[in-house]
């Protein structure tokens, strides 16, 4: 049990680390490596509805102004669990490894989430909750919001990092006006 807890705790830590990176910097891979920061709903200039299907988004492309805060309403209209995560391609790639662990540990099971596993207290206040501000994880039929401030121009995508989904093309481009 100890080993298990340590492991999952480690994972939760690494996830928070990513969340941190998402909010701040991610290491400077080329220009425009920042993805922005969590926004305040009151500052949102508009609402963009993003629908999730198996396995793609509608729309697959959005345009924002540098510095704009957008309120995303994300609806899962598919039959599988999907994620909506804002970040650079490198951030998505790193996050995919964590998502793979979530699948391997039965947190994500095709069409549903195992909330018991997600909420399991690891004994140090961490869990596999997937509660980073730049992303939401949705079961079929669910709808959630992400408020995001696109601080600077950058190579930013919104993506589903459930294993295989991003690779198959479940991502959308964020274009800067």
């Amino acid at each position: 049990m100890n080993a298990s807890k340590l492991f999952v705790a480690g994972m939760a830590l690494s996830m928070s680390a990513t969340a941190f990176a998402a909010g701040a910097h991610d290491g400077g891979h080329g220009h425009g490596a920042t993805s922005g920061e969590p926004g305040k709903a009151s500052e949102a200039s508009r609402t963009i509805t993003v629908e999730m299907y198996d396995n793609y988004y509608e729309p697959e492309e959005i345009s924002v102004k540098p510095g704009e805060t957008v309120r995303f309403v994300v609806e899962n209209k598919g039959n599988l669990v999907h994620e909506f995560s804002v970040g650079t391609p490198d951030m998505h790639e790193a996050h995919q490894e964590e998502m793979m662990m979530m699948v391997e540990h039965g947190v994500i099971q095709g069409g549903k989430l195992n909330h018991d596993m997600m909420n399991m207290d690891m004994g140090n206040g961490h869990s596999m909750k997937h509660d980073d501000p730049n992303s939401v994880l949705l079961e079929p039929g669910q709808s959630k919001e992400v408020v995001w401030k696109f601080s600077d121009k950058g190579n930013i995508e919104f993506a589903c990092n459930v294993p295989g989904h991003y690779q198959a093309g479940m991502y959308g481009e964020v274009n800067f006006e």
Partner: peptide, 8 residues
């Protein structure tokens, strides 16, 4: 459901 599984 995997919740019943003892992951430890």
């Amino acid at each position: 459901d995997m919740s019943g599984m003892d992951h430890s």
